[in-house]
Design a protein around this nucleic acid. Structure first.
Lengths: 213, 213
DNA sequence: CTCAAATCCTGACGGGGCGTCACTGACGCC
DNA sequence: GGCGTCAGTGACGCCCCGTCAGGATTTGAG
């Protein structure tokens, strides 16, 4: 990390990169997030300590609190990060979809593949018997849920499907995705296609049998 | 709590109640659980502190640790308690059921009604925006899950239904029940029948559409 | 009834994580 | 080059954690 001078004098910046203040700020924020990801991965949410994260960054404790108010807030930031990366994938599936069935299939497949990819970097070394940390309803996560709901609404309306309880339907779909996804992660080989087929089959089959409000 | 003597001398115990040691032990255990229920209800799992629980019981801090090793363990004990009370209800539904459909309907209804009843005593005053504490996979909770799985297996076999991925199916049903249940708790009036109809409809409809492994 | 052993309640204590704040040095701007 | 601002620093006080030696109470035997 040494700041060796590669030039006799500090070379002038001809690009319009942000100044050093701004750069260390984003670097610190990133360092904290990286450290947090690793610490949560190794110790779990409950076992992790703000001090553990701080130690791993090499920063002073006070610096941490310039960026996040608490362990909870860093964790939420990580969840937000995931949601922010998943959102565009979901959007693409919505654009591609021609009807509810194709949207659901695409979205589920996208989610399971996203989950499998995240799993590699995220849940490195979970203590045995520990449950997954609960993903909180952060703004970005809430936004994804809302987007699912809205996509359902539009696509069902577009094909003149009979009305359903959208809140329940969204909740149920997300619940199935989460839980089947969790089970999928425990199986070897990891079968995203199988999980997709199951979840999509269940919901598509169930949809016509739903009570009409 | 005064031990006023209602008799000139300590009356002989003619029943075969357990001795005083045993009685205070169960009383303490109960006091801790009651206090924990209240504290978790008011502060949430993360916000709660072992000291908060101890304070509310009036016991010494060391006494708490004679009964439970940590905050996590008391919480799990509460979850176990709920599972232990729900288990017999589930069993009754299994006995009554004639086929998968009737079992699912009965079990779902039982769960939603149980949830609504628990809600009164349990989640008194949740801070806004706080998610529910994650119910951990305690022994008793795991047992309930296993029992659901086994009931599914038996009842599907009995009616010669084509094979399905039982793990996924169980996970999906529990997920739907949990999430739809949560949504139900937020609605006024609390409509257990509507929730049951929705969850049952979704799963019963989806069952024939599941992929066959 | 008496007494010793078993039981478990008690609360003070060392250890450590938490969040703060006065200080300082580096950066950006003129 | 000089100055105001802003983020980094780490020691500090606070509180919670889990333990343990000492003491109070119950039990069962004589």
């Amino acid at each position: 990390m040494s700041n060796i001078a590669y030039f006799p004098a500090m070379p002038p910046r001809e690009d319009n990169r942000p100044g050093k203040r701004e750069r260390t700020k984003t670097a610190n924020r990133q360092a904290i997030l990286d450290a947090a990801r690793q610490v949560f991965g190794e110790l779990g949410y409950d076992g992790a300590t703000v001090r553990d994260i701080i130690r791993l960054t090499g920063l002073a404790s006070g610096t941490f609190y310039n960026y996040y108010k608490s362990k909870e807030e860093v964790f939420d930031a990580l969840a937000d990060d995931g949601a922010r990366r998943f959102r565009p994938l979901l959007r693409v599936e919505f654009e591609k979809a021609t009807d509810f069935a194709s949207f659901l299939r695409g979205a589920m497949r996208a989610y399971f593949e996203f989950l499998a990819a995240e799993h590699e970097t995220w849940r490195v070394n979970r203590p045995a018997g520990e449950t997954h940390p609960q993903v909180r309803a952060t703004p970005e996560v809430t936004a994804v849920f809302g987007e699912v709901r809205e996509a359902f609404e539009r696509v069902l309306e577009r094909e003149h499907a009979p009305p359903v309880d959208l809140d329940y339907l969204t909740a149920a779909c997300i619940a199935v995705a989460r839980e089947v996804g969790d089970k999928m992660l425990e199986r070897r080989p990891m079968d995203t296609q199988g999980a997709t087929a199951f979840a999509v089959g269940l919901i598509l089959g169930g949809l016509p049998a739903l009570p009409r409000p």
